[in-house]
Design a protein around this nucleic acid. Sequence first.
DNA 1: GAGCATTTGTCCGTATGTATT
DNA 2: CAATACATACGGACAAATGCT
Lengths: 243, 243
Amino acid sequence: MTTSTRYLEIADRLAAEIVGWPPGARVASEPELADRFGVGRAAARSALQELERRLLVRRVQGAGTFVNRRIEYVISHSRPPSWHAAVAAAGATARSQLTSAGRTRLPATLAERLGRPAGTAVHRIVRIFFVDDLLASWTEDWIPVDVAPDLDLAPRAVESIDLVPRRPGRVRDWCRVSFDIPPVEALRGLRLDAGVAAWRVERISRDADTGRVLLASITWTRADAVRMVVELRDAPAAPDTAG
Amino acid sequence: MTTSTRYLEIADRLAAEIVGWPPGARVASEPELADRFGVGRAAARSALQELERRLLVRRVQGAGTFVNRRIEYVISHSRPPSWHAAVAAAGATARSQLTSAGRTRLPATLAERLGRPAGTAVHRIVRIFFVDDLLASWTEDWIPVDVAPDLDLAPRAVESIDLVPRRPGRVRDWCRVSFDIPPVEALRGLRLDAGVAAWRVERISRDADTGRVLLASITWTRADAVRMVVELRDAPAAPDTAG
DNA sequence: GAGCATTTGTCCGTATGTATT
DNA sequence: CAATACATACGGACAAATGCT
């Protein structure tokens, strides 16, 4: 298909070129592209911005434009959200970093959802997650202190905190996925500028027997980091290929 | 919060102004804004594009910039996707329009998913959906002819086709939600330009007893038309407020 | 249908600001 | 500190789509 607009031609051309390039590979700069295709810097810039819109590259002021990687993140009835599992399935390496952790009192806005009175002592843990050193997610975890009084907040332990309340057969999960504009704290953590939408995964794990909340969390994930897929009910025979 | 960049100041100002304006209301044009705020057309344009990124307005070449409306679309275990229900719940009016309809043969790409051999006679129905006359969705439905030999394709009947196989207690639904770049046919139908991502809702309804596929569909929905929310498992006591 | 004004889309050249390396 | 690269902004021009006369 021939496009009459120059910057889309360039974008399509670049898109075809960078397919197969490793994530993080450097893409030509605006002046380089302007020179190469004989256009002004405006058109070259538009082309790179188009690639960014298509989630094919990430651009960082002062640094450059780099090939992006998007991993598949499937959530379903039988597969509750697991960051490490999703990243591993994509053949990438997951890394997390503790931003803040400590004990605090449950705010009123969350009390109802957790089924605990406001002011209840809880652990609050904020972490960020990487896929092959590309910033991807920001997570806020709430764990009632009486559920895990001696919660180990050492960096090593916090890595796998989503495994803590995961005693097979004893946990009942609730999960809600939407796509929205994160609060400022999450935006800062994800290094996104204001008004950029991201995946929001809200989650509550309860003890299957008592119904007591074990863990509540909100995760904000950059749209350029994951391709989120949510499945409801049982999958049909072969739900593999998707147009 | 004070921003050092002019266009974001203007965007924030406009965003505050248009809150509460009715959907479809006209926003000031680029030259008008440039004049009003004493900036060049580039800055005024950037401000309006910022509002478009935030899904607050829609811009149409030759026509202008207009206040957008986004309805909530909740899909959960207990609430299978229903366009008319979602639109009605938002207090808006739903309208659909038949794009094409006819009998054809099942393509190989879909055969596996439907559990029918390629070449099986099927009805194929393509429709677009509006929320208060704002283009929102594009849907492709596949219905095996032996399931509904005498399918009524009159415009009136096609309005409520998602109700056809909905005999309570006898239907088993499977559904998958993701966010991707639509194929060209859907892009054209949604009047989106290439590379713009949209919601993808894939759905298969089966007879609960026989497992026979009654209806398969793929719906592409503009991100600026709906705020999609997907819930897995049972909701907790009070999942109302969300930060 | 043709013609026209309006509005957004594309593109040029140039300049300055700001973040990264 | 300097070089590089992206971000913002100006002014100007023409193209393309829309809506009205």
